[in-house]
Amino acid sequence: MKRIFMNFMDDESGAVSVDWVVLAASMVAFGLAITAIIQTGAINGVINMFASVDAAL
């Protein structure tokens, strides 16, 4: 039993998978954050544009 446990502890084949999962999750989170920032700015720009058009009419 001790030998099986030591083999398990020395095996690093799953560690790379965990690294990729963490990297992918952080990229998705970063993308969502950037999208939220851009969306807020775009909505404010459209609101300002409509206000300018209404003022011109």
Rank of each mutant, 00 (worst) to 15 (best):
D11M: 02
D11S: 07
D11I: 01
D11K: 03
D11Q: 04
D11N: 15
E12C: 06
E12T: 10
E12K: 15
E12M: 14
E12Y: 11
S13W: 00
S13V: 08
S13T: 13
S13R: 03
S13H: 04
S13L: 09
S13N: 05
S13E: 13
S13M: 05
G14K: 05
G14H: 03
G14D: 10
G14P: 00
G14T: 02
A15H: 02
A15K: 08
A15P: 00
A15G: 01
V16S: 13
V16F: 11
V16R: 15
V16D: 11
V16C: 03
V16T: 09
V16M: 10
S17M: 04
V18K: 14
V18C: 03
V18Y: 11
V18Q: 13
V18W: 08
V18L: 14
D19C: 01
W20L: 02
W20P: 00
W20N: 05
W20E: 06
V21W: 01
V21E: 04
V21K: 12
V21F: 05
V21S: 04
V21R: 10
V21Y: 01
V22L: 10
V22I: 09
L23G: 03
L23A: 08
L23W: 01
L23E: 07
L23R: 08
L23Y: 02
L23V: 01
L23D: 06
A24D: 10
A24V: 05
A24K: 14
A24S: 14
A24G: 13
A24R: 12
A25T: 06
A25Q: 05
A25L: 04
A25K: 01
A25M: 03
A25F: 01
S26V: 01
S26K: 13
M27G: 12
M27A: 15
M27I: 12
M27K: 15
M27R: 15
V28P: 07
A29Q: 03
A29L: 13
A29S: 11
F30I: 11
F30E: 07
F30M: 10
G31H: 02
G31Q: 07
G31R: 04
L32W: 06
L32K: 08
L32T: 07
L32R: 06
A33Y: 11
A33P: 02
A33W: 12
A33N: 05
I34L: 15
I34D: 09
I34G: 04
I34K: 14
I34C: 09
T35R: 15
T35F: 08
T35S: 08
T35E: 04
A36G: 13
A36S: 09
A36Q: 06
I37C: 00
I37A: 03
I37S: 00
I37P: 00
I38Q: 14
I38K: 15
I38W: 14
I38R: 14
I38C: 11
Q39E: 02
Q39Y: 04
Q39D: 02
T40K: 15
T40M: 08
T40N: 09
T40Q: 09
G41E: 01
G41T: 08
G41D: 01
G41P: 01
G41C: 09
G41N: 11
G41Y: 03
